[in-house]
Design a protein around this nucleic acid. Sequence first.
DNA 1: AAAAATATGTCAACAATGCTGACGTATTTT
DNA 2: AAAATACGTCAGCATTGTTGACATATTTTT
Lengths: 168, 168
Amino acid sequence: MKGNDNVARQMPDKHGANELHHDVMTGDGRIDFEIIEGLFFAYRDFISDPDAILATSGFGRAHHRVVHFVNREPGMTVADLLDTLKITKQSLARVLKELIDCGYIQQVAGPEDRRQRKLYPTKTGRELALALAEPQSRRIARAFENMNAGDRRAVVKFLAGMQNAKSE
Amino acid sequence: MKGNDNVARQMPDKHGANELHHDVMTGDGRIDFEIIEGLFFAYRDFISDPDAILATSGFGRAHHRVVHFVNREPGMTVADLLDTLKITKQSLARVLKELIDCGYIQQVAGPEDRRQRKLYPTKTGRELALALAEPQSRRIARAFENMNAGDRRAVVKFLAGMQNAKSE
DNA sequence: AAAAATATGTCAACAATGCTGACGTATTTT
DNA sequence: AAAATACGTCAGCATTGTTGACATATTTTT
């Protein structure tokens, strides 16, 4: 710390132009901070489960998503996958190539349209996807302990309602 | 596409060592794919709202998180923030410095422990945090349309249950 | 008072995963 | 035959995460 620049000593902004807030942001009750923050923390911890496993195989979250959806919809094309993940094909190419090279996914030329590359998981790929989903599913089950079927329906409905409309 | 390497023509793996799966991964009902995928899509769209606003100011998601929590807990220290975000101080330093330099956040030396840097949002910082929270809150409100108070309680409880236990 | 611990900042290098732009090839459609 | 489509690939860049090492101010411990 060479200079103590930037570190206000104790005084409020002497010009009054951009004063500090010492009060908690409440949004006057118009902002749903409870859900905003609940989602942030829930997702942060939800994602941390598979990260540990991924570190072992040298893959990352991007690989996780790819291997997950290919397992959930075997035969999907590259275009399908791009639409699901909402990333560019160059971003996808990197991780998809690695998953193919390492034997987790295979491509098959489309039977009708041979330009397409239909994606299928290998046995190893299926096992990886399941191994990654397991701790996440356990976490979910734990969260639903002491909750009833109606509660679960509410959560499902909420999660669906948070999503953008499907474009078709 | 110089070579057609990697592109299986139509045949299953001739060695049987790592066969393809053409069936949808179900996990034999032991994996909660409905919630896993619901969370993925919900979160993906949830964070896309502020991204548009952030692009204008030249900030990213990392800045968003910082400015959000500093507004929600003015006077929090750098250590508090690190614990909330679960990132390294070097990662935080980059975005925090930018937010300070641009006048969204100020630091004040701790009154009791002067090693600490207590973080406060400026007026501009408060406005940014609110602007970012607004579309997210609207999305949440839309998701809760046609749901009752009990449904909301279920969602809150679920999100809390998904989080790791607080360490204290 | 001296030594150790703590809170924070900073430099440097690197990794993962997004992006854009441009271009190539195989295949299908017009 | 020409155009459109599906996919691959090269190159470069931005954001945001990581480690490791070290500096400084301040507080706590000895």
